Amino acid sequence: MSGNATTPGATVTSKALALLGAFDAGHRRLTLTEMARRAVVPVPTAHRLIGELLEWGAVWREPNGQYVIGQRLWDLGLLAPVHTGLRELASPFLHDIYGATLATVHLAVRDGVEVLYLDRLSGHASVPVVSQIGSRLPLHATGVGKVLLAHAPDAVQRQAFTMLTRVTPYTVVHAGVLGEQLRRVRRDGYAATQEEMTLGACSVAVPVFSEDDDVVAALGMVVPSLRRDKQRLVTALQVAARGVTRTLAARDRASQV
C-alpha cells in the first residue's frame, strides 16, 4: 500500500494531521519522503509542515534522518480521560506494590497488538528494564502483554499470532506453545515470563477487571528471578488489581448519580 486509506483535505491542518497519521504500529520510523507518500501530501509541503511539527514537538528527528512521534503528543495523550483516570486511580495501588516489593511495577493497557505502558515505578534491584512510560512492546513477550493478549478478542489474538518475533533466545514464538500459555493465564489468573523481553529480567502480571468482568488493564512487575517469590508477588499484584477494580467501580457509580 503506497499511502494511507484516506486522502487529506485541502486545509493545512488536514495535511499536518495526515502526516502524523502516516505513523502506525508497522511504521514507527519514517523518512520525510515516506511520510509524504503515506499521507498523500506533496514532498515540498510535507517538508514545510514537518518542520513546524518538529519545532512544536509532535515529531522527533533521529540522527539517521528518520522521524518518530514526539514526546509532546504522548503528553497530550495522557490527558485523555480514559488514560488519565486509570493512571490516577491505579497510582496508590502501584505505590503499595512498590513499597512491599521494591520491584519495578507497571500499569499497562492493550493498544492494538501491542502493550502501552501508562505508568511505571522503577525498582531498586539492578534488573534490566526496557519499558518506559508511553512505550509500546510486543504482547507475546511481556508479562502484562500475555495477560492482555489472553483476554483479547479472537481477531486480535489471530493478528498477534502472525507477529511472533523473537526478542531474546527465550521468547516464545511457537503459536501452539503461546496458545497453551494464554489458556493457563485465563485459568490461573496471572502470567509469568522468563527473560523473554530482556535477558536477566523476569516478569509476572495480573489482569485488572472492570465491574462487568472485562479486562481493562494489567498490573505487572519485573524482577531478577521468580524461583522463590512468584506466589508472593502474584498475591500482591492481585490484591492491588482488586483495589483498582473496586475504585473504578466506585468512580463509575458516582458518575451515574
Rank of each mutant, 00 (worst) to 15 (best):
R187F: 14
Q132R: 15
V115W: 03
A108D: 12
D111H: 11
T245P: 00
F93G: 03
T235M: 14
A5L: 14
T104G: 12
V177H: 11
L118Y: 07
T104K: 02
G220W: 09
A249V: 08
N4G: 15
G189W: 11
R246L: 15
R120G: 01
G3E: 09
A58G: 00
L73N: 06
A240D: 03
W56C: 02
R61E: 14
P92R: 09
D75I: 02
I133N: 03
R186L: 13
D212M: 12
V82P: 00
A90H: 01
R37T: 09
L32W: 03
V215F: 05
G85V: 04
S225W: 05
V68Q: 06
D229C: 05
R246S: 12
L164I: 06
R158V: 09
N4T: 07
L79D: 11
L178Q: 05
V206F: 06
R242G: 07
D212A: 15
S131F: 07
A10M: 03
L226R: 02
A218P: 04
S2L: 11
R28I: 00
L102V: 10
V223W: 07
W74T: 01
S131V: 06
V244S: 02
Q157I: 14
A240Y: 02
A46S: 08
D212E: 15
V105G: 01
V147C: 05
H47M: 01
P138F: 07
D119L: 09
S203Q: 15
T13Q: 06
I50Y: 02
A236C: 13
A22N: 03
C202V: 00
G179W: 04
T193D: 08
D229R: 14
T11N: 04
G99L: 11
V257C: 12
Y190C: 00
L248Q: 14
A25W: 04
G220Q: 09
D111I: 02
L86A: 08
G65I: 04
D214W: 04
T104E: 08
I97C: 06
R232P: 01
P42C: 10
S2E: 10
V156I: 15
H124Y: 15
I50T: 10
T33I: 10
V172W: 04
P138R: 05
G123H: 03
R246C: 11
E55C: 04
R251E: 14
M1F: 10
P128F: 03
I69T: 09
E196M: 02
L54V: 05
T45D: 05
S210R: 05
E55S: 12
R228P: 01
N4K: 04
L137H: 10
A218F: 09
T13K: 08
T245R: 13
P8V: 00
E195W: 06
T6Q: 08
L73W: 10
R158K: 15
V216N: 10
R186C: 13
S135P: 02
Q157M: 13
E195D: 13
